[in-house]
Design a binder for these strands. Structure first.
Lengths: 336, 336
DNA sequence: CTGAAAGCGCTTACAG
DNA sequence: CTGAAAGCGCTTACAG
């Protein structure tokens, strides 16, 4: 009995035909209760598991989704955790693909993934090239794109919290602002920049500028180094926590206090952000739920079902010391 | 021509039989140069891709590996990037599985993964239960285990850098040490603790204790809060950067300077560690290479080939401000 | 309500 | 050096 049991084995042992086993296991109607129970019992005894390759060949469905992630992103594991669980619940498996750095290689890899016929759906967290899909391509859901109206399309790129943060800081009396962008190849970076410009104008605030950064701490550090000595008092809206951390370092380097002379906001709620001194005011995004919901959206699209309700509210501002806010000693997120 | 081309289509168009196409594509010997070229040309024209499910059914090989990761780990994406690339080079695909928190559910999930028959190999970064594998289980390579000799087995759990750090600090005159552990369910946490105890004893240093932590920043913070007022001067060996960040906060809270009164080392080289003030002395581990190498080891085991050379040296100490070291303004790792 | 038969696309001995 | 035939394990009309 070194062999893995097949549906034929189950059929033989249950005294029915292979098709009946199949009908029971795929949940078709029109099987007597007694037969159904017997088959299920035998299948369990034999620890029978359907051969997915064989099933896939018959059904012409692979049951596989591709998840495309940038080569190294800190939120990958959270997305993954949510996505794999949601996929499992929907009866799909997920294969992760990280894209290489070189642009041409990326395009080719994406094309391969979308058109390989191996995946029913593709969930991408990197910007997709303009319609590489041809005839038999997979259904693609990209969370790093603008939609047709050039509006940001979804939680990953929604800059709303940035607007709220500026409004709140303004209501506290802040008048002088500065924005350090993320890498502008990312829709989220462009969305935040545009929201910054819009909000400053709307509220009649003073902007010392929009400095182009690249998501790295160094870009934050260098931005602060480039400021004139009379820059403070200043509220810096950084594109993420790492940039904000660089900003803090730059400020201290120049003898400016944080949040006294300069206050700063980030984005991402990195694990260390709550603990650093000063702790960083930030925007928390529930990547795990985002991953799960995205898979659900993709699966709904595959099945021509209506899109599941968005549920909204994946993002949340967390006020901390870098903007002069009180912080309890409890640190909310501290997983390794 | 809305259909995906099959090997039969290629055969017809190339004027050969299906078996010849197969023989060419699987690289068998004994095909004339002319035939080979013609088949390859047609396959390319038709954008033919072998149906992997069908191939898998014939060969009884799935070509799939499972990568098992803890539910949320910051290094997941790096492991993944290396692992998927190495897998692709070896002709395998990788499916990622994150394990739920509940112990019983975990065991069951692991058993399912190992014995599902879907995977030829399993690469695990979580401790595996004692031999869940039965008859037809997959080959398992776990990187979070002790080996048979109860020695740490591999780069993930190798505490050597911790020994080096203590030796270096001692040579600079430090005499009073403290260790804050990671969650002791992890072999790496136990390995570091044991190495700490051993090294303190070997060098005749003074230990103020080994405080059990859980990898979180809070555990570092609380450990420092629990110290007597006369604890400094003190060198704290924290289990990771997050704990070290909590230690810094705790020290500042008590009016102790860092690295003056208290110096601290971490582990992991989190992206923010180079930028925080003070920046954190840490151990960098090349997770991407670790992922790639682990897959290569697993594949070698599957093929009964000799284990590839380890290459060693995946870990590297980075000295920074938290131990009073000079730091250039260049930050080495700052990717988002 | 149940079973016999065909076929998904591939690879693998085997015959020529 | 090349092709005809069988079969991997499943699902799906179809017949009974």
């Amino acid at each position: 009995m070194g062999k893995v049991p097949t549906s034929r084995d189950v059929a033989a042992r249950a005294g029915v035909s292979q098709s009946t086993v199949s009908n029971v296991l795929t949940g078709r109607p029109g099987i007597s209760q007694a037969t159904r129970e017997r088959v299920l019992k035998v299948a369990k005894e034999l620890r029978y598991r359907p051969n997915l390759a064989a099933r896939s060949m018959r059904t012409q469905r692979t049951g596989r989704l591709a998840l495309v992630l940038p080569i190294t992103t800190w939120f990958a594991s959270k997305i993954l955790a949510g996505a794999t669980q949601a996929a499992q619940e929907a009866g799909y498996t997920i294969e992760v693909h990280t894209l290489p750095g070189d642009f041409h290689a990326r395009q080719q890899r994406l094309d391969e993934i979308v058109n390989s016929g191996q995946f029913e759906g593709v969930l991408s967290f990197v910007p997709m090239p303009p319609c590489p899909s041809g005839e038999g391509g997979a259904t693609v859901l990209s969370l790093a794109e603008f939609d047709d109206d050039m509006k940001v399309s979804g939680d990953l790129t929604d800059p709303a919290p940035l607007v709220t943060m500026i409004e709140e800081l303004a209501s506290r009396g802040h008048r002088r602002f500065l924005h350090i962008t993320g890498a502008l190849a990312y829709p989220s970076a462009r969305a935040r920049r545009d929201a910054y410009v819009r909000t400053i104008e709307k509220l009649g605030l003073q902007s010392l500028g929009v400095i182009e950064g690249d998501w790295t701490g160094e870009s934050g550090l260098n931005a602060i180094r480039s400021l004139p000595d009379d820059a403070p008092p200043l509220a810096v809206v950084a594109s993420n926590d790492l940039v904000a951390t660089g900003v803090v370092r730059g400020a201290l380097e120049r003898g400016w206090t944080v949040p006294g002379d300069l206050c700063v906001t980030g984005w991402d709620d990195l694990v260390s952000s709550a603990l650093q001194v000063p702790s960083i005011t930030t925007v928390f995004l529930d990547y795990q739920r985002l991953g799960a919901r995205s898979v659900q959206r993709l699966v709904a699209a595959l099945r021509d079902e209506p899109e599941p309700p968005s549920g909204g509210g994946l993002q949340r501002i967390i006020w901390r010391e870098s903007t002069g806010d009180f912080v309890s000693s409890k640190t909310p997120h501290g997983n390794d």
